[in-house]
Write a protein that binds this DNA or RNA. Structure first.
Length: 297
DNA sequence: TAAACGTGGCA
DNA sequence: TTGCCAAGTTT
């Protein structure tokens, strides 16, 4: 870490850590009694999904499946059904697959090493680092959308980070990470918490920010975002909308569902045909011999 | 590398 | 009302 960053890091730590101690939310997966498995489940659920929607579903999940082995003993379809309406149901499928790997290859235990976590289905760089840090107190570089935004503003002076994660952002996050394991884990969650509660994407609460006197973005007069255009996701009429409707029908059904009932929720038959095939290919839907379908058993 | 992948709340 | 955004991963 160069001297410039060393000074920056110290200034940020001195301001952010006391703020976090006061303002941290009491989330169930942060409580001391929460198992590493509970932390892993929370991290996968939180991918692209707000805390408020995750919380009740997470409670039901860890109550039903308190260990990887318990989930592995259920069907993937049960996992998808219990996913409810969190979105991206392939995450439920991957979490189930991860539970099977944990049971069969890791003694039913969630590993503490980032490199090992990274091999699990549905676990990418962020989730591996987050579980190592939050479940095991390890020193890992956690870079999520909150961290990227806080660093972009406070250190880089930009309104928002670039559309895609860059090497420079990872290097910056690594440079700011405290040496001590436990401190590093707290630092990671503190930066994320600031991004979630104060340094938000829209209408940041700069007046309440502990970094306001050192934030380079604020000191520059809070200039607007000037990077490459960010792609909004289309929704109406997309395959994603069509898939979502068909999976919802299967989630809500008690047994197998006829093809016509699935197609009835979408006006364009050619598109729903294609989407149903894709759902089967993805393993989210299981075809039976009699032209009926169900969640995978 | 960029596009696909769900869902709902908020400005 | 419409668009943006939420603790990303996979191909």
């Amino acid at each position: 870490m160069g001297p410039a960053h060393a000074a920056t890091a110290a200034a940020l730590h001195d301001r952010l850590l006391p703020w976090y101690a006061v303002h941290r939310r009491d989330l169930p997966w942060r409580r001391p009694g929460c198992s590493p498995w509970g932390v892993l489940v929370s991290e996968v659920m939180l991918q692209q999904t707000p805390v408020a929607r995750v919380q009740p579903v997470w409670q039901r999940w860890v109550a039903a499946w308190p260990t990887p082995a318990a989930l592995a003993a259920s069907s993937p379809g049960d996992a998808v059904r219990a996913w409810e309406r969190l979105g991206y149901p392939r995450r439920a499928l991957r979490l189930h697959a991860a539970a099977v790997v944990l049971r069969d290859e890791h003694g039913g235990v969630v590993p503490a090493q980032e490199e090992v976590l990274r091999t699990l289905p549905g676990v990418g760089d962020y989730t591996a680092a987050a579980v190592a840090a939050f479940a095991f107190g390890r020193r890992s570089t956690v870079v999520d959308t909150n961290v990227r935004r806080v660093h972009a503003r406070s250190v880089t002076g930009a309104a928002l980070p670039a559309p895609a994660l860059t090497r420079a952002e990872v290097a910056l996050a690594a440079a700011l990470l405290p040496e001590d394991d436990r401190e590093a884990a707290t630092w990671n969650v503190a930066v994320m918490e600031l991004g979630a509660l104060v340094c938000t994407a829209r209408s940041p609460r700069c007046g309440a920010c502990p970094l306001r006197d050192v934030c380079r973005w604020r000191l520059a007069g809070s200039p607007p975002y000037d990077g490459p255009p960010r792609r909004g996701q289309a929704w109406e009429g997309t395959d994603r909308q069509c898939r979502g409707r068909m999976v919802q029908v299967l989630r809500d059904a008690s047994g197998p569902v006829g093809a016509e009932e699935l197609h009835s929720v979408w006006p364009d038959r050619a598109q729903s045909d294609r989407c149903l095939d894709a759902l089967v290919a993805d393993g989210l839907v299981e075809p039976l011999e009699d032209a009926r379908f169900r969640l995978p058993v």
